[in-house]
Nucleic acid binder design. Sequence first.
RNA 1: GCAGAAGUACCCAAGUGGCUCAAGGGGCUCCCCUGCUAAGGGAGUAGUGCUGGAAACGGCAGCGCGGGUUCAAAUCCCGCCUUCUGCGCCA
Length: 429
Amino acid sequence: MIDIAFLRNHPDEVRENIRKKFQDKKLPLVDEAIALDEKRRALQTEGDSLRAARNAISKQIGQLMKEKKLEEAEAAKAQVNADAVRLSELEKETEEAQSRLTQVMMRIPNIISPETPIGKDDSENVEGKRFLEPKTPDFEVPYHLDILEKLDGIDIDSARRTSGQGFYYLTGDIARLHSAVLTYARDFMINKGFTYCIPPYMIRSSVVSGVMSFEEMEGMMYKIEGEDLYLIGTSEHSMIGRFMGQTLDEKQLPLTLTSYSPCFRKEKGAHGIEERGIYRIHQFEKQEMIVICKPEDSVAWYEKMWNYTVELFVSLGIPVRTLECCSGDLADLKYRSVDVEAWSPRQQKYFEVGSCSNLTDAQARRLGIRYKTEKGSAFAHTLNNTVVAPPRMLIAFVENHLRADGSVEIPEALRPYMGGKTEISVKKA
RNA sequence: GCAGAAGUACCCAAGUGGCUCAAGGGGCUCCCCUGCUAAGGGAGUAGUGCUGGAAACGGCAGCGCGGGUUCAAAUCCCGCCUUCUGCGCCA
């Protein structure tokens, strides 16, 4: 959500931003917002002055009652009553104008960064940098499920019986690898100065509706029956919810947090769960980073954050690249976003393993995340980024470290987390 | 989960419908006095949000959150949240 005062003063910049995002249908929203804003302020001014008058008369009534001047008191009451109808009308209209304005403002996209490439959709996203040479082994790399099955590391069939499509049992060394990757990632971020955090895995509907739109909620969130609770789709939900409506102390910033949680997603909609395997699933685990900082620092944090993910993957010997999200593909709340993609030797292409976003103050304004300043308070900037999210990440891991004999090498950095093991060997023919 | 109690500003806390659009104290800031120390005196202290105004300076909201009653609500009524105590259950 952008600042209404900014929109009021710079409507052309807001329109230009909408055009850059190829959302020309939304152009009328700018004038709509300006009109609603004017209306709302006029209604408030009128209501405020009626309330001011009422407050004054009420005080007089109290005085008159004390002096036993009952007739005069009754006359004053009548006077207040005369305005009561108008006032309640005004209150209703003000509330209505405010909520309509909020609805319009929520549909107006955040101003995008000057660095964001202009493009219609994901086909026009722009490759950034590559890290490590993509490998192409001289043997055929099987589908990741086949690799994992040979290592006796996965049982999809049983999971389908117990839980349905989109679930998995990880077993043995692969299950251990899964935990090791998360633990390694956790320590990696702690060493970068981030504070480790384990959040609630369920949140109330009031928090859900704060952190996402109704449509997103329908497509993603699992509801607990008979409770006002939802399973989180990412730890960002409870991590950001933690600060809703809070005014932070300037000295607390930047908050640099790394959170672990399981993530639950319905994955309803266009690209539902159709693929076999563990690429798109209902349940996964994720180490996340969240930064809440002052406005002047968010651009620098954004750069640091995606670089941390790259550094982590490189330290595990997995080639990655960045893919800058173009204007048309950028979600409305985002100022700038970049995907980190890992190399798939089997598919001979990169695929998404993480996403880093700077939301500037759009999310903070929507959720009321402020910090105290000398003059008063201001909205903070919020950023989030994936550190690592297995089991999807394991696809890249096993494909890149696969040997001709079907075993998988464990990179040096991860061995302490795997009890010193150097490889995961084939268990099945 | 059941029962009881509570939630007021940075902290403690008074406050059963209008002399409270929140008393008093602590703390904090500034000033005075005392050679130092201990102590004392005075002033300030509701942060914030919305809003009017070029500004000066105003208005509205705000006593856990959301509704309601009333000319008027911290105060009365309803729902919710949180905390404490006891009982129960449980990694």
